[in-house]
Design a binder for these strands. Structure first.
Length: 897
DNA sequence: CAATCGACTTGGGATGAACTCG
DNA sequence: CGAGTTCATCCCAAGTCGATTG
């Protein structure tokens, strides 16, 4: 709780305006600037229709009104007042302030405010604009694109639409069920600006288009289908992980059915892509391009949306992402740590600078090891261990019931490190004769003890911990108090690598102050080392980076572990926003990029062809780039590192992918591809063995260098963000119908699920899943029995007869036919709900929705949709997400990705 | 140009608190 | 109110990608 407390304070501070906790904390940072810019831009340039404009103004500026309904006040900051806020000084922070040197903080804060205000003002006016420009990508005009330009998903969808069977077997039922509800009433209000959100949304989103469409019907899932989930077959991953994980097996079966409709887009002008010329994107005309694949499909819709999309462009252009150009300077400064950081001045050319003043208290270390004295057995006899030896033995003992225990590599690595600690002459000579049970049991007892503690005790402990940690939880960046992400130094333990990691089981030694380098403002007091008698390894004052501290990873000394600010900080928010702006920019280039790579499928130059095919896969399947990995890491791949054996050609034009990706999560998918791609893959495979690289001429730096020629700042990962967000935007806009909040939330979840499937975000099936399912089934059966009984009673009641006795032989109350009918209806509703829940549960058992929400879906899409449809944002974003996405909360309701 | 360094984003799982439902 | 779930957080591993180095 302590944690929270602080945050609250912060909010309170601003509260006056309103309260929202989540709101922006600082106005000045560039991020905020940007925000404002954007919004401004939008307003200025974007306005599409009249009503809209009105609306925007209102919404943006005084969000409150409308929001109140839609979103809770708290979440949405009242933008009305330009942000003033200076958290730091906030009351509660009394203590905090104490830590920060008074001087600094005060001064910073003041200046800060001022600047911030000014900055904000300026921004607003400057609004950029127009850089819009120049070259448009050309062609697109014929929008018709059959689907080419669409995002992958869309493409897929098209096809799949016909047979949604592609979807996992389980789904069909579900989709049907949903359908009915969704449609519903149309209570629209009037469209004016002031009109409540609902009104707006009705106008825009539904406008013609899809309203009638049943939601499940069309497109079902594109990519999704590819991936299948039947749990039956588990492949590689499973095997390897030895039963532990039950990830979604993705089976191939279905996938094959789904085909992509996409046809080669060859048509468009291929050449133009060329790059450099492309510089900024062009204006509108490209209408369809940005439209997600799926959307494009239905032209009608596009018309509507396009208007909005157009407006956005201006905005995007503005985006800051590209500013990094000045980066080089950084190095210099960095080395010479001396410097510049001194000046607090506000906007000193920001170039590369990430902050001007930075104050924090360093990191907190885990408590020293407390020996428990419980003796393990060796060859049946108790053994004495030194505290150090016992500590490591305990780490191992605690893992008795995990799968790691069945992995030889784990035990081997553990033994290597532990035996070193034991020393050459120790009685313990072999792990095989060790019995850690006594220690494990002690551990279980401790756990139990903790569980049994009364809630007061627990609370007290928590408070105490909070008290100790409080000072480490916050940093003051440019005068603003921000949460620190991971201020706790990682405790020692046994390394738990994912998949078949060669280093699993190795001892991750304790980190000490002398391992840690602190980065802090030049004028800030250097944090006192929390462990008496020790000192930090180094102190830096590098304002070109955002980390507060780092140490070398004990498992892999070449790598570092950093302490950063929390996701809710404006530094993070700013880069998050830049990430999405870059992805939105891709929207304007995507059509040409697709045309270009399509053309290169048949290029004579092998490298060129490989780049084309790899880009296609990244775009269509949302594969990761695939950097090279060392031998001392788990053997996983991404696009550029795919092995010949990971792809199987299935005539006439399908490819079956099967490989372990990040975190050793298996990716299995069979997709139909364009013939030239199919042929190219075949060529890349010929003459190679299964373990050879499929793209032997390629690596991520070459690929990214090429992408960068197509669009400034473009890299492989941008495609994932783009396709994820565009899919969400598209699905939401296509499928949201009138209905109650719960129904809309379901729509959102379906879209979210779609994205998760595209990105292959999996989770393991919970241990209790099958038990839960059977329990539900049982309940449903029971209810159905009840239903039958009620029907009998109804018949009898109608004839004036009393109901039959119930199962226990007791006489039931004599109800009127009307009453019985009512009961029947209630029961039916209950059954339907249960079945629906069950289906959802089954469908999501291996799909992780959170990852995409956190990392891939532009929060502005969600916020705008919530505003348009009067869905409280809290229904979609939890507290942390609200905080993380504070920068997106004041988005215009008309925002489209 | 390849290898390495460096910084930052993305990811799944574990844990425990907060709800739900009987 | 208690067992079972669901949800939010924490934890830290594992990617991406630009910059440097040699």
């Amino acid at each position: 709780m302590a944690v929270e407390a602080p945050s609250k304070h912060v909010f309170d501070y601003d509260d006056e305006d309103d309260d929202g906790p989540v709101v922006f904390k600082r106005s000045n940072t560039s991020s905020s600037k940007q925000n404002q810019l954007n919004s401004e831009v939008k307003k200025a340039s974007s306005q599409r229709s009249d009503r809209q404009s009105g609306r925007q103004a209102s919404s943006v500026r005084a969000p409150n009104g409308q929001n109140s309904v839609a979103q809770t006040n708290k979440s949405i900051p009242p933008s009305k007042s330009p942000p003033i806020r200076s958290p730091i000084l906030s009351p509660k922070s009394s203590n905090s302030s104490s830590k920060a040197s008074p001087v600094v903080s005060s001064k910073a804060s003041t200046s800060f405010n001022d600047q911030s205000k000014q900055a904000s003002k300026q921004n607003k006016f400057t609004a950029v604009k127009e850089e819009k420009s120049p070259i448009k990508c050309t062609d697109e005009t014929n929008s018709d694109d059959d689907d080419d330009s669409k995002p992958l998903s869309a493409r897929l969808k098209g096809i799949s639409s016909q047979g949604n069977k592609g979807v996992s077997t389980s789904t069909p039922a579900q989709s049907q069920r949903f359908v009915p509800k969704i449609e519903v009433k149309g209570s629209a209000e009037d469209p004016d600006d002031d009109a409540p959100l609902s009104a707006r949304f009705s106008t825009k989103s539904n406008t013609g288009t899809s309203s009638s469409k049943p939601y499940g019907s069309h497109e079902k899932k594109p990519l999704a289908s590819k991936i299948q989930q039947n749990g039956s077959i588990m492949k590689v991953k499973q095997q390897k992980s030895s039963m532990l994980s039950d990830k979604r097996p993705l089976d191939k079966g279905n996938s094959s059915d789904q085909s992509y409709a996409k046809k080669p887009k060859i048509s468009d002008a291929p050449t133009m892509m060329k790059t450099k010329q492309v510089t900024v994107k062009a204006e509108k005309d490209d209408e369809d391009d940005h439209i997600p694949i799926s959307q494009r499909i239905k032209k009608s819709v596009s018309s509507v949306s396009k208007a909005s999309s157009v407006k956005q462009k201006a905005t995007k252009v503005v985006s800051s992402s590209f500013k990094k150009i000045n980066k080089k300077s950084k190095k210099d400064m960095k080395n010479s740590k001396y410097s510049k950081s001194t000046k607090l001045s506000p906007s000193s050319g920001d170039g590369q600078k990430k902050w001007s003043t930075l104050v924090h208290n360093g990191v907190i270390f885990p408590p020293p090891y407390k020996p428990h004295g419980v003796k393990m057995l060796y060859d049946g006899r108790p053994v004495d261990l030194t505290p150090e030896q016992e500590e490591v033995a305990t780490m191992f003992a605690v893992m008795q019931e995990t799968d790691y225990m069945s992995k030889p590599q784990f035990k081997k690595n553990f033994w290597e490190d532990w035996s070193k600690l034991l020393g050459r002459n120790h009685v313990i000579k072999s792990l095989d004769k060790c019995d850690f049970t006594p220690i494990y049991e002690w551990h279980l007892q401790e756990k139990e003890k903790k569980k049994q503690m009364s809630s007061e005790e627990k609370k007290a402990l928590k408070e105490e911990k909070l008290m100790q940690e409080e000072k480490y939880m916050w940093a003051i960046v440019d005068g603003v108090k921000e949460k620190v992400g991971n201020f706790r130094v990682e405790p020692p333990g046994l390394f738990r690598g994912r998949g078949e990691h060669p280093k699993m089981g190795k001892l991750k030694r304790r980190i000490r102050p002398c391992d840690i380098t602190i980065n802090i403002g030049k004028d800030a007091p250097i944090p006192e080392c929390p462990i008496p008698g020790e000192r930090w390894k180094d102190i830096k004052h590098d304002n070109t980076v955002t980390w507060l501290a780092f140490w070398n990873d004990p498992i892999n000394p070449k790598e570092f572990k950093y302490v950063f600010l929390a996701a809710s900080s404006s530094l993070k928010g700013q880069s998050d926003k830049e990430k999405y702006e870059k992805a939105r920019l891709l929207k304007d280039y995507i059509k040409n990029i697709r045309a270009a790579y399509t053309k290169d499928f048949t290029a004579k130059d092998v490298t060129k062809r490989q780049i084309a095919v790899a880009t296609y896969l990244i775009d269509k399947l949302a594969l990761r780039a695939g950097n090279e990995k060392d031998d001392d890491e788990a053997d996983t791949v991404g696009c550029c590192t795919l092995k010949v054996g990971n792809v199987e050609c299935i005539p006439p034009n399908k490819l079956k992918f099967d490989f372990l990706g990040k975190d050793s999560i298996q990716y299995v998918n069979t997709v139909e591809v364009e013939l030239p791609v199919y042929k190219a893959i075949g060529q890349f495979q010929t003459g190679k063995s299964k373990s050879d690289d499929l793209f032997d001429e390629l690596d991520t730096s070459k690929l990214n260098a090429h992408l960068k020629e197509l669009m400034p700042g473009l890299t492989a990962k941008v495609f994932r963000t783009y396709n994820a967000s565009i899919t969400l935007d598209d699905m939401l806009n296509k499928e949201t119908k009138d209905g109650d909040v719960a129904e809309k939330v379901v729509i959102y979840q379906r879209a979210n699920k779609e994205v998760a499937i595209i990105c292959n975000h999996q989770r393991s099936i919970s241990k209790s899943h099958s038990a839960q399912m059977s329990r539900l089934t049982e309940k449903i059966t029971e209810l159905k029995g009840l239903l039958k009984e009620l029907k009998t009673d109804l018949d009898r009641a109608k004839k004036g007869k009393p109901p039959l006795k119930d199962a226990d032989g007791k006489q039931k109350r004599n109800l009127t036919p009307e009453a019985i009918e009512k009961k029947i209806a209630q029961t039916n509703v209950k059954i339907e709900k249960m079945e629906r829940d069950m289906q959802t549960k089954e469908d999501l058992k291996t799909v992780a929705l959170g990852t995409s929400k956190i990392n891939y879906l532009d929060p502005r899409i969600t916020v705008a949709w919530c505003k348009r449809h009067e869905v409280p944002i809290e229904k979609i974003f939890n507290k942390s997400l609200l905080a993380k996405f504070a920068w997106a909360m004041d988005v215009d309701p008309d925002f489209r990705f």
